[in-house]
Nucleic acid binder design. Structure first.
Length: 490
RNA sequence: GGCCCCGUCGUCUAGCGGCCCAGGACUCUGGCUUCUCAAGUCAGCUACGAGGGUUCGAAUCCCUUCGGGGCUACCA
């Protein structure tokens, strides 16, 4: 089989099964799907695979939609936007799958299987014991009418099983090259449950064909299910050139080299959002997991990603997720924000933390203060902590810092500072700095580090703060002075 | 166990037979800068899993082996 679809307009789909919040691995797949569609000028289709009704919930479906939107991965066909091949929730397409399953039955490609779960388990058990390839043993492949009648008389319910012919399936994976599976290791598989609901293997294959998907970029875990999908295409009568091209993306692993999960790192995108990671940082970092532009370039915008992304540059080997690198990129992206953007991103964190209530005076002060903290944070959730000193009603010095300003040397610094700050007529950071340096450094002969640490603690309450003179300017003359006076009493 | 995929610094990667006693980024360590913290900047540490081939020459090609992972459901 050769690479199909060479001449057609590209259509890529992202088709998660929302059995929980979308996680890092899902998003990396979605990102590659999206980037590939955009790069080729093709269509990005978003489909919800909710055939497993016991695990998929409406909440998870909505969360998946919201997450994709938040990340900026817009789709051309799918939930909310519609499209020519809808509906895009598999739960709304049940009749379609049923029709095809019936057709496969009529054609003899599929058959009813009356084996009970217990019986199947017993077969597998025996196979394991005998050390042979496990899988369905074909028990119901060629039942006579009498045998069927007997099973039905017992009240047994049947699943629909696909008949795998002898031979093998070879397909060309766009990332891994030719992959072959001998059908000896691809047992007859179930298409429809006893209750009549379709399984993934049926729904995914039918939909990819009906929705005219040309490229399937998905996780490596689905690699071994590919021959089953191809078998469904064959039963559907799809021409070889209309098969989608498969590209199986490498895994995103956790620190301990196991598939990423809650145990070895935070995986839910909702968590990253709450922590204050920017969507662009997440996408930039994830893009680097299993793909690279081919040179030393690492900082890419979403736009650049769509220009640079090709499947040829995707790796075949798995990548470990590294929070530190994500943090570094997030810091870079935050620093690259315009002031307006930085403000918009920060505001929700400030109000949620209760640092400000959101009135005009506060907003104005926040806007003035943001520039001095922009290069000092890694995540947006650090903003409230850095600006808190400007807004607290009940100011108090950090208990651990109190002892550092209770010595006589510090008191001298604070006293002398008051003397020069109180008469200061122009309250801007340059004037404040000039006055303090003249008095404390030149006149008293103190080391800047010593002198300013005392003032920093007194005015901001902590040994760590944004630049001191800018902070005092923002704080205002009267507040700065009263805090210094108060610190003298500690 | 069987089938399939994968294997370059701690991590992400560049590398497609000579440009590589292996380059970049993150982390880490040390220096500079400095009012703290950051940012910036300089330097350092550390890798081709192993063994055989092929070749004048291999991280790059072949084989074996070891290691990791996935699948092996009326999950996806």
């Amino acid at each position: 089989m050769t690479l199909a679809n060479s001449g057609k307009k590209v259509k890529v789909r992202f088709a998660p099964s929302p059995t929980g919040d979308l996680h890092v691995g899902n998003i990396r797949t979605a990102l590659f799907d999206w980037a590939f569609a955009r790069h080729t000028g093709g269509t990005f289709l978003f489909r919800i695979e909710d055939t497993d009704t016991t695990r998929v919930t409406p909440e998870y479906i909505q969360a998946a939609i919201d997450t994709l939107k938040w990340l900026g991965l817009s789709w051309d066909e799918g939930p909310e936007v519609g499209g020519p091949n809808g509906p895009y929730l598999q739960s709304q397409r049940l009749d379609i799958y049923a029709t095809w399953a019936q057709k496969f039955l009529d054609q003899g490609d599929a058959y009813h299987c009356y084996c009970s779960p217990d019986e199947l388990e017993a077969v597998r058990e025996a196979q394991r014991a005998a050390n042979v390839a496990p899988g369905y043993n074909g028990h119901c492949r060629d039942l006579t009418a009498d045998q069927v009648a007997a099973y039905q008389a017992e009240g047994r319910e049947a699943v629909v099983r696909m008949r795998m012919p002898d031979g093998s399936t070879t397909f060309t994976d766009a990332i891994r090259g030719d992959v072959t599976f001998d059908h000896k290791f691809v047992p007859d598989f179930v298409l429809v449950r006893a209750d009549g609901s379709p399984l993934y293997t049926l729904a995914v294959a039918v939909d990819d064909i009906l929705m005219e998907v040309t490229h399937v970029l998905r996780g490596e875990d689905l690699l071994s299910s590919t021959p089953r999908q191809i078998r469904v295409y064959q039963a559907m009568g799809v021409k070889l050139e209309d098969y989608p091209t498969f590209a199986h993306l490498p895994f995103v692993m956790g620190q301990d080299n196991a598939k990423l999960s809650k145990r070895n790192g935070e995986v839910s995108i909702a968590w990253y959002r709450e922590q204050g990671y920017l969507p662009e940082a997440i996408c930039n970092y994830l893009a680097l997991l299993g793909w690279s532009p081919g040179d030393d370039r690492e900082n890419v915008t979403m736009q650049e990603l769509t220009e640079l992304f090709t499947v040829e540059k995707v790796h075949s080997s798995p990548a470990r997720f590294d929070m530190k690198k994500l943090e570094a990129i997030n810091g870079d992206k935050i620093r690259a924000l315009t002031l307006d953007e930085f403000f918009s991103w920060s505001l929700p964190f400030l109000t949620k933390a209760g640092t400000i209530s959101g009135n005009d005076a506060e907003i104005e002060l926040v806007k003035k203060a943001l520039p001095i903290i922009q290069e000092r944070l890694v995540k947006l959730d650090e903003v409230p902590g850095l600006l808190k000193f400007l807004f607290v009603k009940e100011f108090a010095v950090d208990p651990e810092a109190v002892e550092k300003i209770s010595d006589s040397g510090s008191k001298d610094v604070l006293k002398r500072s008051l003397q020069v700050l109180e008469p200061l007529s122009s309250w801007d950071h340059a004037s404040i700095e000039a006055a303090l340096r003249a008095a404390l450094i030149e006149e008293m002969g103190l080391k800047p580090r010593i002198a300013f640490t005392a003032l920093r603690i007194a005015t901001t309450g902590s040994t760590i703060s944004p630049p001191l003179f800018e902070s005092m300017e923002l704080l205002g003359q009267s507040t700065s002075i009263s805090r210094i006076s108060a610190a003298l009493q500690l």
